[in-house]
Amino acid sequence: MALAVTAIAAASYTPSMGIFQATYKPSGTGVVTIVVAQEKVDDPTARIVIYAPLGYKATLTQAPGTQIGNVVADVQVLDLGPNTLPLTGAVKADSPANYPAASNLCTPEATHEAVWTLNAALPGQPANPIPVYVDHSTGAEAAFSSVKMTVCFRDPTLPSGDPRRSPNGTKFLDAAFSVKGVFTNPTSAGNQLWRTLFTPYTPGTGTPNAAGTREAQGVVPMPYNISIKRIRKARPGFFRLAGTVNVAGTAPTGVGLKLFAGVKGKSGITFKAVASTKTRKGKYVFNRRLPKKVTYLFVERPPTSIACAVPLVTCTSAIASNAISGVVRVAPPPKKR
């Protein structure tokens, strides 16, 4: 699986993030996928703090051992070489009691409402669970966020044998983890701003470089949807697809869209982009030749880079979530007798 967000290479530390949801309806509930990423050339990451926007509600009472989602990640294992290795696994709830405040180096002296573990591993290999500490925001952070998620990594650039070194020199590159039954969307329309603070290590020291902390943002329009339908009126040999795009309650002009098409094969339907267009007052149209085989089509507004909005620290990227229409089926024209 290719992750939807990649960091934009510009300096020694340029992380990025994105948020992708099963539903963008106000008050809706569904799977939320959080993507965080950095470049291979970036300094290793020490700490990531993800903030959900005000208005989101979170249920943090899942029983320990419950699987609440899945994770897909890419890492480098420096002891094995420079290649990128893909990892997959489950996201599970754990007991906060397993992470005593007195010995927790990631969040010293802090107790947590919930802990999730990212159990990503190579196929056939045991996972080295990475804890995510989850709390409702308090204090100054409650002014801009509802929930705070914190994860830490060990320094892969320390010498072998240093107990602070990550196992086998494992360096985080990117991860997409989903959770279900946790988040409920805000009740009001608008652009919801997720923030993530990334702090790198000063390489080879095991010491976080606080001055190098960077922010990345994920913008979630709400409501956010793309409608699609086949228009029967089309010139001979063609078909027409049309619909509307709702971005946070607006009907925008100039929003880029892609049309994807695929046919059924032995392993299912493989979609590929076949056309693109832009909206005009929230509307779009695609005119295509009738296919030779039964074809399935959908429209996507891809993840889009936008300007950062009032960052807490230097901001390296801001990405608006994607939206995907339903799927329509188009059959070939009847054979002539």
Rank of each mutant, 00 (worst) to 15 (best):
L257N: 02
S178D: 01
P252K: 06
T244Q: 08
V220G: 01
Y201S: 06
F271T: 06
N246R: 09
G268D: 10
T253P: 00
A242N: 03
P186H: 13
G181A: 12
P223L: 14
T213Y: 14
T279R: 09
V255L: 11
P200C: 07
P236Y: 04
K229N: 12
A242H: 06
M222W: 01
A234F: 12
L193V: 08
P208D: 03
T202P: 00
A275Y: 05
G218H: 03
R235D: 06
T213W: 13
T207G: 04
R280Q: 14
F239Y: 15
V255Q: 07
F239H: 13
L197P: 00
M222D: 02
T253R: 00
I228K: 01
T250I: 11
A211G: 14
A189P: 09
G254F: 02
T196M: 09
G254V: 02
T270G: 02
N191M: 03
M222Y: 00
T244W: 01
P252W: 04
F271I: 00
T244E: 03
T207A: 11
A234N: 05
Y224S: 03
A261S: 08
Q217D: 04
Q192G: 02
V220W: 04
G206S: 04
G265R: 07
A234H: 09
N225V: 12
G212P: 05
W194F: 15
K266S: 15
V274Y: 01
F271Y: 11
T253V: 08
V220S: 10
A248L: 01
N185S: 12
A234L: 10
R235T: 11
R214L: 15
V274T: 03
F271R: 06
T250S: 14
S276R: 05
T213E: 11
F183Q: 04
G256R: 14
T202L: 05
G249T: 08
F198Y: 13
S188K: 15
V245L: 08
V247Y: 01
G190D: 06
V179E: 09
G204C: 09
V182K: 04
T199I: 13
K233S: 15
F183M: 07
L193H: 00
A189D: 14
K278C: 05
F239V: 10
T250R: 10
T279M: 06
I269W: 10
R195V: 09
R240M: 14
T250M: 10
R280I: 13
P208C: 05
T187S: 14
E215K: 12
